[in-house]
Protein backbone atom coordinates (compact mmCIF):
# COMPACT_ATOMS: atom_id res chain seq x y z
CA UNK A 1 0.00 0.00 0.00
CA UNK A 2 1.24 3.47 -0.87
CA UNK A 3 0.96 6.19 1.76
CA UNK A 4 0.11 9.33 -0.19
CA UNK A 5 1.70 11.85 2.15
CA UNK A 6 5.19 13.21 2.35
CA UNK A 7 4.85 14.24 5.98
CA UNK A 8 2.72 13.32 8.95
CA UNK A 9 1.67 16.75 10.15
CA UNK A 10 -1.80 16.05 11.42
CA UNK A 11 -4.81 13.79 11.30
CA UNK A 12 -6.76 16.44 9.38
CA UNK A 13 -5.24 15.44 6.05
CA UNK A 14 -5.49 11.66 6.51
CA UNK A 15 -8.25 9.53 5.05
CA UNK A 16 -9.96 6.57 6.71
CA UNK A 17 -7.83 4.19 4.69
CA UNK A 18 -4.61 6.05 5.59
CA UNK A 19 -5.49 5.64 9.25
CA UNK A 20 -6.33 1.97 8.85
CA UNK A 21 -3.09 1.35 6.96
CA UNK A 22 -1.00 2.83 9.74
CA UNK A 23 -2.85 0.88 12.40
CA UNK A 24 -2.60 -2.41 10.47
CA UNK A 25 1.12 -2.00 9.99
CA UNK A 26 1.51 -1.00 13.65
CA UNK A 27 -0.10 -4.31 14.69
CA UNK A 28 2.83 -6.18 13.14
CA UNK A 29 5.22 -4.05 15.16
CA UNK A 30 3.32 -4.76 18.38
CA UNK A 31 4.20 -8.40 17.79
CA UNK A 32 7.80 -7.60 16.95
CA UNK A 33 8.20 -5.45 20.05
CA UNK A 34 7.05 -8.29 22.26
CA UNK A 35 9.77 -10.64 21.01
CA UNK A 36 13.15 -10.79 22.67
CA UNK A 37 14.89 -9.69 19.48
CA UNK A 38 13.12 -6.49 18.49
CA UNK A 39 15.00 -5.43 15.45
CA UNK A 40 14.17 -4.67 11.88
CA UNK A 41 16.19 -2.87 9.27
CA UNK A 42 13.54 -1.05 7.26
CA UNK A 43 15.08 2.30 8.20
CA UNK A 44 18.71 1.22 8.03
CA UNK A 45 20.90 3.85 6.46
CA UNK A 46 18.37 6.57 7.17
CA UNK A 47 18.96 9.38 9.63
CA UNK A 48 16.28 10.44 12.06
CA UNK A 49 16.58 13.68 13.98
CA UNK A 50 14.34 14.42 16.94
CA UNK A 51 13.93 18.15 17.45
CA UNK A 52 12.02 19.01 20.58
CA UNK A 53 11.46 22.71 21.15
CA UNK A 54 9.33 21.84 24.14
CA UNK A 55 10.08 19.49 27.01
CA UNK A 56 9.15 15.90 26.47
CA UNK A 57 10.28 12.67 28.00
CA UNK A 58 7.88 10.00 26.90
CA UNK A 59 7.15 11.11 23.34
CA UNK A 60 10.79 11.69 22.60
CA UNK A 61 11.79 8.34 24.11
CA UNK A 62 9.07 6.62 22.13
CA UNK A 63 10.20 8.13 18.83
CA UNK A 64 13.81 7.38 19.62
CA UNK A 65 13.10 3.78 20.42
CA UNK A 66 10.90 3.39 17.36
CA UNK A 67 13.66 4.68 15.11
CA UNK A 68 16.34 2.54 16.72
CA UNK A 69 14.26 -0.62 16.50
CA UNK A 70 13.87 0.00 12.79
CA UNK A 71 17.59 0.47 12.33
CA UNK A 72 17.73 4.24 11.76
CA UNK A 73 20.54 6.43 13.00
CA UNK A 74 18.80 8.54 15.61
CA UNK A 75 19.95 11.87 16.93
CA UNK A 76 18.24 13.91 19.62
CA UNK A 77 18.47 17.66 19.72
CA UNK A 78 17.33 19.51 22.82
CA UNK A 79 16.28 22.72 21.17
CA UNK A 80 15.34 24.71 24.25
CA UNK A 81 18.99 24.80 25.20
CA UNK A 82 20.47 25.59 21.84
CA UNK A 83 20.50 28.15 19.09
CA UNK A 84 16.93 29.33 19.63
CA UNK A 85 18.25 31.01 22.73
CA UNK A 86 20.82 32.72 20.56
CA UNK A 87 18.09 34.27 18.44
CA UNK A 88 18.13 31.94 15.46
CA UNK A 89 14.77 31.69 13.73
CA UNK A 90 12.94 28.45 13.23
CA UNK A 91 13.50 28.61 9.49
CA UNK A 92 17.25 29.07 9.89
CA UNK A 93 17.38 26.15 12.26
CA UNK A 94 15.47 24.09 9.73
CA UNK A 95 17.77 25.07 6.89
CA UNK A 96 20.82 24.23 8.99
CA UNK A 97 19.48 20.80 9.77
CA UNK A 98 18.39 20.28 6.20
CA UNK A 99 21.96 20.74 5.09
CA UNK A 100 22.89 17.69 7.20
CA UNK A 101 20.59 15.56 5.00
CA UNK A 102 18.33 13.93 7.55
CA UNK A 103 15.62 11.62 6.20
CA UNK A 104 13.12 11.84 9.02
CA UNK A 105 12.60 14.85 11.19
CA UNK A 106 10.49 14.51 14.33
CA UNK A 107 9.45 17.91 15.64
CA UNK A 108 7.66 19.22 18.67
CA UNK A 109 7.10 22.96 19.04
CA UNK A 110 5.15 25.15 21.47
CA UNK A 111 3.45 27.13 18.66
CA UNK A 112 0.56 25.90 16.55
CA UNK A 113 1.56 25.57 12.91
CA UNK A 114 5.29 25.73 13.55
CA UNK A 115 5.81 22.16 12.34
CA UNK A 116 3.88 22.89 9.11
CA UNK A 117 6.10 25.90 8.55
CA UNK A 118 9.23 23.87 9.08
CA UNK A 119 8.00 21.11 6.78
CA UNK A 120 7.72 23.62 3.93
CA UNK A 121 11.43 24.38 4.16
CA UNK A 122 13.10 20.98 4.35
CA UNK A 123 13.55 18.12 1.92
CA UNK A 124 12.99 15.26 4.35
CA UNK A 125 9.86 13.71 5.81
CA UNK A 126 8.55 15.55 8.87
CA UNK A 127 6.58 13.96 11.69
CA UNK A 128 4.66 16.25 13.99
CA UNK A 129 5.27 15.26 17.59
CA UNK A 130 2.91 17.98 18.82
CA UNK A 131 2.60 21.65 17.82
CA UNK A 132 1.06 24.10 20.28
CA UNK A 133 -2.66 23.52 20.63
CA UNK A 134 -2.97 22.22 17.09
CA UNK A 135 -2.28 18.52 16.53
CA UNK A 136 -0.47 15.51 17.94
CA UNK A 137 -1.15 12.90 15.28
CA UNK A 138 0.86 9.95 16.60
CA UNK A 139 -0.89 10.27 19.96
CA UNK A 140 -4.29 10.01 18.26
CA UNK A 141 -3.09 7.04 16.23
CA UNK A 142 -1.79 5.21 19.27
CA UNK A 143 -5.04 5.92 21.07
CA UNK A 144 -6.94 4.55 18.08
CA UNK A 145 -4.85 1.39 18.05
CA UNK A 146 -5.39 0.93 21.78
CA UNK A 147 -9.15 1.34 21.38
CA UNK A 148 -9.28 -0.98 18.37
CA UNK A 149 -7.44 -3.72 20.25
CA UNK A 150 -9.51 -3.34 23.43
CA UNK A 151 -12.89 -2.98 21.75
CA UNK A 152 -12.35 -5.03 18.62
CA UNK A 153 -13.39 -2.14 16.38
CA UNK A 154 -12.85 1.55 15.80
CA UNK A 155 -16.28 2.65 14.71
CA UNK A 156 -19.71 3.18 16.23
CA UNK A 157 -18.31 3.60 19.72
CA UNK A 158 -19.36 6.17 22.30
CA UNK A 159 -16.21 7.94 23.34
CA UNK A 160 -15.91 10.57 26.04
CA UNK A 161 -12.97 12.98 25.99
CA UNK A 162 -12.80 14.67 29.38
CA UNK A 163 -11.08 17.66 30.85
CA UNK A 164 -8.88 20.37 29.40
CA UNK A 165 -9.98 20.16 25.77
CA UNK A 166 -9.25 23.83 25.04
CA UNK A 167 -5.51 23.56 25.54
CA UNK A 168 -5.12 20.05 24.19
CA UNK A 169 -3.66 19.08 20.84
CA UNK A 170 -4.33 15.48 21.86
CA UNK A 171 -8.05 16.26 22.06
CA UNK A 172 -8.07 17.94 18.64
CA UNK A 173 -6.28 15.09 16.90
CA UNK A 174 -8.46 12.50 18.62
CA UNK A 175 -11.63 14.41 17.82
CA UNK A 176 -10.70 14.50 14.15
CA UNK A 177 -9.53 10.89 13.97
CA UNK A 178 -12.40 9.36 15.90
CA UNK A 179 -14.84 11.49 13.93
CA UNK A 180 -13.38 10.30 10.62
CA UNK A 181 -13.80 6.71 11.83
CA UNK A 182 -17.50 7.37 12.56
CA UNK A 183 -17.71 7.32 16.31
CA UNK A 184 -19.90 9.39 18.62
CA UNK A 185 -17.82 11.77 20.62
CA UNK A 186 -18.69 13.57 23.80
CA UNK A 187 -16.57 16.31 25.25
CA UNK A 188 -16.87 16.69 28.99
CA UNK A 189 -15.52 19.52 31.08
CA UNK A 190 -16.21 22.97 32.48
CA UNK A 191 -17.19 25.43 29.72
CA UNK A 192 -13.99 27.39 30.32
CA UNK A 193 -12.04 24.35 29.16
CA UNK A 194 -14.53 23.02 26.59
CA UNK A 195 -15.52 26.01 24.44
CA UNK A 196 -18.81 25.85 22.54
CA UNK A 197 -17.02 25.98 19.18
CA UNK A 198 -16.15 22.30 19.57
CA UNK A 199 -19.81 21.48 18.94
CA UNK A 200 -19.19 22.56 15.34
CA UNK A 201 -16.95 19.51 14.92
CA UNK A 202 -19.95 17.27 15.54
CA UNK A 203 -19.17 16.50 19.17
CA UNK A 204 -21.72 16.59 21.97
CA UNK A 205 -20.72 18.82 24.84
CA UNK A 206 -21.43 18.11 28.51
CA UNK A 207 -20.55 20.21 31.52
CA UNK A 208 -21.96 17.55 33.86
CA UNK A 209 -19.59 14.61 33.96
CA UNK A 210 -22.14 12.21 35.44
CA UNK A 211 -24.47 12.84 32.53
CA UNK A 212 -21.70 12.75 29.95
CA UNK A 213 -20.20 9.44 31.02
CA UNK A 214 -23.47 7.55 30.84
CA UNK A 215 -23.08 4.44 28.67
CA UNK A 216 -19.81 5.34 27.02
CA UNK A 217 -17.40 2.67 25.76
CA UNK A 218 -14.24 4.67 26.17
CA UNK A 219 -13.27 7.31 28.73
CA UNK A 220 -10.33 9.38 27.57
CA UNK A 221 -8.97 11.66 30.26
CA UNK A 222 -6.81 14.67 29.46
CA UNK A 223 -4.11 16.25 31.50
CA UNK A 224 -4.89 19.60 33.05
CA UNK A 225 -2.32 21.73 31.21
CA UNK A 226 -1.39 24.10 33.96
CA UNK A 227 1.59 25.37 31.99
CA UNK A 228 -0.60 26.54 29.10
CA UNK A 229 -3.10 28.38 31.26
CA UNK A 230 -2.79 32.08 31.80
CA UNK A 231 -4.90 31.87 34.91
CA UNK A 232 -8.50 31.58 35.90
CA UNK A 233 -9.90 28.62 33.97
CA UNK A 234 -10.89 26.68 37.09
CA UNK A 235 -11.38 27.85 40.66
CA UNK A 236 -9.12 25.22 42.24
CA UNK A 237 -7.74 21.77 41.63
CA UNK A 238 -9.79 20.26 44.44
CA UNK A 239 -13.03 21.61 43.02
CA UNK A 240 -11.96 20.40 39.59
CA UNK A 241 -11.26 16.94 40.94
CA UNK A 242 -14.60 16.86 42.69
CA UNK A 243 -16.55 17.79 39.56
CA UNK A 244 -14.40 16.44 36.70
CA UNK A 245 -11.86 14.03 38.18
CA UNK A 246 -12.43 10.42 37.16
CA UNK A 247 -13.06 8.10 40.09
CA UNK A 248 -14.77 4.74 40.52
CA UNK A 249 -18.15 6.32 41.27
CA UNK A 250 -18.21 8.36 38.08
CA UNK A 251 -16.81 5.51 36.00
CA UNK A 252 -19.66 3.28 37.22
CA UNK A 253 -21.97 5.34 35.00
CA UNK A 254 -20.12 4.26 31.87
CA UNK A 255 -20.61 0.84 30.30
CA UNK A 256 -19.39 -1.96 32.54
CA UNK A 257 -16.60 -2.80 30.11
CA UNK A 258 -15.59 0.80 29.42
CA UNK A 259 -11.86 1.40 29.21
CA UNK A 260 -9.99 4.31 30.77
CA UNK A 261 -7.29 6.14 28.84
CA UNK A 262 -4.87 8.96 29.58
CA UNK A 263 -2.15 10.36 27.31
CA UNK A 264 0.16 11.02 30.27
CA UNK A 265 1.79 12.38 32.21
CA UNK A 266 -1.01 12.11 34.76
CA UNK A 267 -1.86 14.52 37.55
CA UNK A 268 -3.06 11.93 40.02
CA UNK A 269 -5.76 13.29 42.25
CA UNK A 270 -6.45 16.18 39.86
CA UNK A 271 -8.03 14.62 36.80
CA UNK A 272 -7.87 10.94 37.71
CA UNK A 273 -7.96 8.83 40.83
CA UNK A 274 -4.59 7.10 41.31
CA UNK A 275 -6.03 3.68 42.11
CA UNK A 276 -8.24 3.76 39.06
CA UNK A 277 -5.33 4.67 36.82
CA UNK A 278 -3.51 1.56 38.04
CA UNK A 279 -6.49 -0.81 37.76
CA UNK A 280 -5.43 -3.22 35.03
CA UNK A 281 -9.02 -4.29 34.46
CA UNK A 282 -10.13 -0.82 33.42
CA UNK A 283 -7.09 1.27 32.65
CA UNK A 284 -5.24 0.81 29.34
CA UNK A 285 -2.77 3.60 30.09
CA UNK A 286 0.27 1.30 29.99
CA UNK A 287 -0.97 -0.28 26.79
CA UNK A 288 -1.17 3.20 25.25
CA UNK A 289 2.53 3.67 25.87
CA UNK A 290 3.28 0.31 24.27
CA UNK A 291 1.14 1.13 21.23
CA UNK A 292 2.94 4.43 20.93
CA UNK A 293 6.19 2.79 19.91
CA UNK A 294 4.45 0.51 17.41
CA UNK A 295 2.44 3.30 15.81
CA UNK A 296 5.50 5.51 15.44
CA UNK A 297 7.42 2.64 13.85
CA UNK A 298 4.58 2.18 11.38
CA UNK A 299 4.30 5.87 10.55
CA UNK A 300 8.04 6.20 9.99
CA UNK A 301 8.14 3.10 7.83
CA UNK A 302 5.36 4.38 5.57
CA UNK A 303 7.06 7.75 5.14
CA UNK A 304 10.42 6.07 4.56
CA UNK A 305 8.98 3.90 1.78
CA UNK A 306 8.11 7.10 -0.07
CA UNK A 307 11.60 8.45 0.54
CA UNK A 308 13.19 5.34 -0.95
CA UNK A 309 10.90 5.48 -3.96
CA UNK A 310 12.01 9.00 -4.71
CA UNK A 311 15.67 8.14 -4.23
Amino acid sequence: MRFAHRHLLGIEHLSQSDITAILDLAETYVDLNRQSTKHSDVLSGLTQINMFFENSTRTQASFELAGKRLGADVMNMAMQASSIKKGETLIDTAMTLNAMHPDLLVVRHPHSGAVDLLAQKVNCAVLNAGDGKHEHPTQALLDALTIRRAKGRLHRLNIAICGDVAHSRVARSNLILLGKMENRIRLIGPPTLVPDHFAEFGAEIYDDMNEGLRDVDVVMMLRLQKERMDGGFIPSEREYYHRYGLDAAKLALAKSDAIVMHPGPMNRGVEIDGTLADDINRSVIQEQVEMGVAVRMAAMELLARNLREVA
Partner: peptide
Protein backbone atom coordinates in the same frame (compact mmCIF):
# COMPACT_ATOMS: atom_id res chain seq x y z
CA UNK B 1 -4.24 40.19 24.27
CA UNK B 2 -2.16 37.58 22.47
CA UNK B 3 -4.88 36.74 19.97
CA UNK B 4 -3.86 35.72 16.46
CA UNK B 5 -7.29 34.73 15.14
CA UNK B 6 -11.01 35.27 15.68
CA UNK B 7 -12.54 32.67 17.96
CA UNK B 8 -14.64 30.10 16.17
CA UNK B 9 -14.38 26.74 14.49
CA UNK B 10 -11.40 27.66 12.35
CA UNK B 11 -9.26 29.04 15.19
CA UNK B 12 -10.17 26.00 17.26
CA UNK B 13 -9.12 23.62 14.50
CA UNK B 14 -5.84 25.41 14.00
CA UNK B 15 -5.21 25.68 17.75
CA UNK B 16 -4.58 29.42 17.54
Amino acid sequence: AGAAATSGKFATLRGL
